[in-house]
Design a protein around this nucleic acid. Structure first.
Lengths: 189, 189
DNA sequence: GCGCTCATGTAAGGGGTTACATGATTAC
DNA sequence: GTAATCATGTAACCCCTTACATGAGCGC
């Protein structure tokens, strides 16, 4: 029962519809939480029933209508309660790392291809983060924004996401280089 | 259904009992997969029923007996099939990052305390990885081992884990420093 | 005896994933 | 009309988590 807190934290940035929230969870938020659209629709319905968010119908002429959500006082209180409670240890689950762990007994070429793909995805995410960070800090330079900006939370998590993806990209490249070098040297696999 | 592949990949390193596997999943393997002991016992039973691993009873005099498992040919084939299939995108779920994202509207002191705690945990993991890496490469230096060692998969994933924890520790410290500086400057809470 | 580690589970319930369903509106 | 995006779900199933249960052997 922690998806709700990720949703509440995200709705502090702006009001969102389920559809918009799904987009955000697929990009920026994905650095600290992962969820599918169906989960988000269900969670928003539950959160509204419990009074932690309120929905507002928005009539759109050029597109289908939508329902956007805002955090209530009760929702914020729940987020504070969550913040003060102990954190569960975070966890990673990564298919690609499982594959690398077993690479000496499986198919090196398949792993190499996936490392290259992952490195590219990481690169794309880095650029996405750079854009997001620029957008968040507006006219200020980073140090100024971090020290004087009003809301730094989202900026700080983006910085973390950016570092993570950089590390990810570099490791993928280093690992691919090494596996390639071994292939060249041994002429097997 | 991907826990099984993490288990198979881990059993390539050595034969393990469920209990030992749980220990390994709590430390080294935790960098790419997370699982509780109950899951592992259940998965080992299923894997043996499907012929992907074989169990062997070990009689111990000084401790309760145990059952240790090895990957079969069919298990290795399944791991190869998995390796060649597309990877699911990896995901992170991290309470602490949710809390940092919302920090401007919640309790800074609680977040600071948890950042410090997390930084310490990361430091401990870095040391654990250093030990593991030394153990894996034996007498060889790192470059030599990476280029000439027999099994580099586990070493490569450890390197990834180490980098990840380093990044984690640094970000926690930087973030805590910044939040502290803001507290000092604004004198609010 | 008591607590610790080793060792292996069962059962219930909640959360997440996969597959499917529906409809509005815009652009070609 | 057909594809693409916007928009919102339902249903079934599987996996994961939480809580509980059991017992052997060691050190004090």
């Amino acid at each position: 029962m922690a998806l709700r807190h990720a949703v509440l934290a995200t709705l502090l940035d702006s009001e969102y519809s389920g559809y918009q929230l799904a987009k955000v969870f697929d990009t920026g938020v994905a650095n600290f939480w992962h969820a599918l659209p169906q989960q988000l629709y269900a969670e928003l319905t539950k959160l509204e029933a419990e009074g932690l968010v309120t929905g507002r119908r928005v009539i759109q002429l050029d597109r289908p209508n939508k329902r956007v959500y805002t955090v209530t006082e009760a929702g914020l209180a729940e987020l504070v309660r969550f913040t003060e409670a102990q954190s569960k240890p975070s966890f990673i689950r990564d298919d690609l790392l499982v594959k690398v762990h077993a690479v000496d007994r499986t198919t090196v070429s398949a792993v190499l291809a996936q490392l290259a793909e992952r490195a590219e995805q990481a690169e794309a995410k880095i650029e996405m983060f750079d854009g997001l960070l620029r957008q968040l800090r507006g006219d200020l330079d980073e140090q100024r924004f971090l020290h004087e900006g009003e809301r730094v939370g989202p900026y700080l998590t983006c910085l973390r996401g950016r570092r993570f993806e950089q590390e990810n990209r570099d490791w993928c490249r280093d690992t691919a280089d090494l596996l390639n070098a071994r292939l060249g040297a041994h002429r097997d696999g």
